[in-house]
């Protein structure tokens, strides 16, 4: 009977309390708000991939790609743009926003509050995943209704797993990359260049099969090519369901591990003193 009079302690052994969940929601919502009020972030995160989707798609209507078994261009490039979008909403957005907030001393301020560090990252990644989900919906909707790309129910589990693994991999790589950037203004090219270069060699906008073998191998060592190929498999009507590509997923998971190690080792809450 007495236990009922002390309800306060009942939640204390729960790993995440309801209060923490509320805090996490607040944190995510505020990160979302900050992103949507930042024009540059919207340009890079949303406008750029959608522009590629529209213009690249419009200029290749009815094209079949002989180099990859006469595949319809739309079937090839919609998953490519999906991969590209996922990288820009996760990696690019996280790396730049964390670098800017570190440079401005916002991270140091947050470190001085009771907000647990994991919750800070969870809020950022949460907001990022919401953006990714939005982009995935946009790209799939345009792909389906403007370009008539089939979204196969039988490969949907693979598609979802590919997207989740890709998002996890590129989110943690974004956090890792933010540690390299010292000053926010100089950060943009350092962050953007690697994934733009990878986009061009990884068969995202056009097939990589015409590239020399060494370049294909190089692309394959990084996690964009595996992401694009595994997404492509989910869309390709000639690939049998469930269209899971184990090696591609493993490459992405390996990079997730690398990103985690680098982030844990090098993450800083304060900018380097000059």
């Amino acid at each position: 009977m007495k236990a009922q009079s002390i309800p306060v302690n009942e939640h204390k052994y729960v790993f995440i309390s309801s209060k923490d969940i509320k805090l996490l929601a607040t944190q995510t919502a505020s990160e979302q708000k900050i992103l949507w009020r930042n024009r540059r972030a919207i340009l890079f995160t949303f406008i750029l991939p959608v522009a590629f989707l529209v213009f690249l798609g419009a200029s290749n209507r009815g094209v079949h790609l002989k180099i990859i078994g006469n595949m319809n261009f739309d079937t090839f490039f919609v998953p490519g743009i999906l991969a590209f979008s996922l990288v820009s909403t996760t990696y690019s957005n996280l790396a730049l926003s964390i670098a800017v907030q570190r440079d401005q001393g916002i991270l140091k301020r947050i470190k001085g509050t009771p907000l647990p560090p994991w919750m800070f990252f969870a809020g950022k990644v949460g907001a990022t995943l919401l953006n990714s989900l939005l982009m995935v919906v946009i790209v799939l909707a345009v792909g389906r209704f403007a370009y008539g790309v089939q979204i196969r129910v039988s490969t949907l589990p693979a598609l979802i797993v590919d997207l989740l693994v890709g998002a996890a991999c590129w989110s943690i790589l974004g956090i890792a990359m933010s540690t390299v950037v010292n000053r926010a203004e100089g950060g943009s090219p350092i962050v953007t260049l690697p994934y733009i270069v990878l986009s061009f060699i990884s068969g995202v906008f056009y097939p990589a099969q015409a590239e020399p073998a060494w370049l294909q191998d190089l692309a394959r060592a990084f996690p964009l090519e595996p992401l694009a190929r595994s997404l492509e498999a989910a869309f390709d009507p000639f690939v049998a369901a469930p269209a899971f590509r184990g090696t591609d997923l493993l490459i992405m998971l390996a990079w997730t591990a690398v990103g985690t190690v680098l982030s844990l080792r090098f993450f800083r809450w304060e900018r380097k003193s000059s």
Binding site: T26, Q101, Q104, G105, I106, R109, G112, T113
Partner: peptide, 30 residues
């Protein structure tokens, strides 16, 4: 950290938030 407050010499505040939103965000941490 629940029991201390820190006003640093130079540390930014999320510029896209309003005064009220910034206060509400940091209040939610305590």
């Amino acid at each position: 950290r629940e029991r201390i407050g820190i006003m640093l010499q130079e540390s930014g505040i999320q510029t896209q938030l309003s005064v009220r939103e910034a206060l509400d965000l940091y209040r939610s941490y305590y």
